[in-house]
Simulated assay, not measured.
Amino acid sequence: MLIAVDAVGGDHFPQNPVQGSIEALKEDDSIEVLLTGPKDLIQKELKNLEYDSNRTHILDAPEIVGMDESPSAAFKSKKASSISLGLTAHKKGECDGFVSAGNTGALLAASTLILGKLEGVMRPTISATYPTLKGISLLIDAGANLELKPEMYLQFAKMGTIFSEEILNKKSPTIGLLNIGEEPEKGSDEHKEAFQLLSQMDGFKGNIEGKDILYGTTDIYLTDGFTGNVVLKFGESIPGVLKLLLSKTMESEQVSPEVQKQLFTILAKGLNTFNYEHVGGVPFLGVNGTSLVGHGGSSPTAIKNMIINAAHCVTHKLNDKIVASLN
C-alpha cells in the first residue's frame, strides 16, 4: 500500500509530515510512503531520521501551496505543487491514496478536478470528526458546499454512514439533521424536504439542535457547509477557552501551584476526547479516489494516523461501498 504524503502541507512542514510518515512505516509494515514536495527539502529532513529507505520514496514537486492562498488560483498557477503532482500520481494509479495537512480548499478543488466524482455523486463533501461525551461523531458538511439541495443531504448521510461504519467502527450509526427545532416542520423548505428524504433511512433520528451536539445525540450531524464550518471552528475553540477560564479562576482564588498542576492534569485527561490526533484526517467523501485532509497544525502523530486511515479507506473499499449505497 503506497500512500502519497504532502511533505509541505500544514503549519509545520516538512518536519511533521516527514516524521509522521516515518512513524506510520514503523506502526504498519504494509504501508509505503511517497513524500511529495521539493526533493532537497525532504532529503534534508530525512537525514535527521532513521527510516526504511526501501519503503520511503520521493516525488519531486518544487512548488508549495500556502495555507492562505486562493484555492482556485493555487490550483491553476501551481501545476508542479505537491498537491497537484501527488493527486495526479494517484489518478494514474502510481499510488493508492494522498494525504495532506495543507490548504483544504486547494486540496478539495484539486481532488475534485483531478480525481473526478464517484458515479452517482452530486457533489463531494468535507466531513469532520467531532468530539462528544459519547465519543467521536461525524459532521457533514464541514465547509465544502455552503448551500445544499435536499437530495444532497441524503447522499451525504449515506456516504457518512459508510465512513462511520468502516473507518470509525460505528455499528448502525445514527443520523441527525441540524436544525432550529426538533419538530419535522422546522427550518427552511430545503430542511423540510431533506427531513422527508432522510426519513427513508433506518438510522435517521430526526432534527437535532445545537445543544445536542456535544452530548453525542447522534453519530452523524448533517448540515450545510456554512453552518458546519462555524460549528467546527467553534468546537475547536472550546479546549483553549476552558484552559484560560480555569487559569484565571485559579489565579483569582490564589490556588497553590501544586493544586493548579493537578487540576490542569485532570482537565487535560478530560479533554482528551477533543484531541484531533486520534483520527488524524478525514477523506473528501464522493471523490473518485482516496484523498484525506488533516488539521493545519497536525503533529507527527496526527499525520501518522491520517496515513493509516487512508490505507484503511483503501483496504475497506470505501468508495465501492459508497457507490453501491447510492445506486
Rank of each mutant, 00 (worst) to 15 (best):
L59T: 03
N169Y: 11
D224C: 13
D202H: 12
A157K: 02
G37E: 01
Y153A: 07
I303V: 15
N207H: 07
M1F: 07
A144T: 08
I114A: 02
F13H: 10
F13A: 14
K304R: 14
D96M: 10
V65Q: 04
F284N: 05
N272E: 12
S199N: 10
S137K: 11
V121N: 09
Q200Y: 06
M67S: 09
E165D: 01
N275Y: 00
E119T: 13
G105F: 05
N16Q: 14
E32N: 13
L2E: 07
E69F: 10
H316R: 14
L133R: 12
A106S: 12
F163V: 06
S164G: 13
P150G: 02
D6H: 10
A311M: 01
T104F: 02
K91T: 08
Q155A: 06
M152Q: 15
S252D: 07
L87F: 07
E251L: 00
P17K: 06
T265D: 07
D40M: 11
P239E: 06
S77G: 00
G66A: 11
E23K: 09
A61C: 02
K78H: 10
N229S: 15
N275C: 01
L198A: 08
E166W: 01
I136A: 04
Q15P: 00
I22H: 04
E209M: 06
F284W: 09
